[in-house]
Amino acid sequence: MSRNTKINGLLLLLVAALAVLPLALGLGDHKEEPFAGADAEAETAITEIEPDYEPWFSPLYEPPSGEIESALFALQAALGAGVLAYYFGLRRGRRQGEERAAARTEGGAPAADADKDA
């Protein structure tokens, strides 16, 4: 494995550790609902500060269940990951193509000259 790959792997490992540690250490155990969303907690805080506050608008479309919601979140992540993978794959392919073309012109110098004349 090259040094570059090792560093990239280490970066991913660190991110994974940061995500897993709070779960592994049980940092949500003191809560009624461990690892709820911060936005839901903010809604609770708002009702504590202003018990009469009623949200005056509701979402036009609301996923009918938690499953559908997580499916849509997964879709969002998949769309993003797909585009990113396409980008890096395309770049890599182009670079390899260019390298191969360069190697070919170096190997067959007369062919390159012929191109120039044409």
Partner: peptide, 18 residues
């Protein structure tokens, strides 16, 4: 796309929320 991926990733944090 990077923003799409990252803002879809709900991660647990030290405060016990996500």
């Amino acid at each position: 796309a990077f923003t799409f991926v990252l803002s879809a990733l709900k991660l647990p944090s030290v405060t016990g929320s996500c």
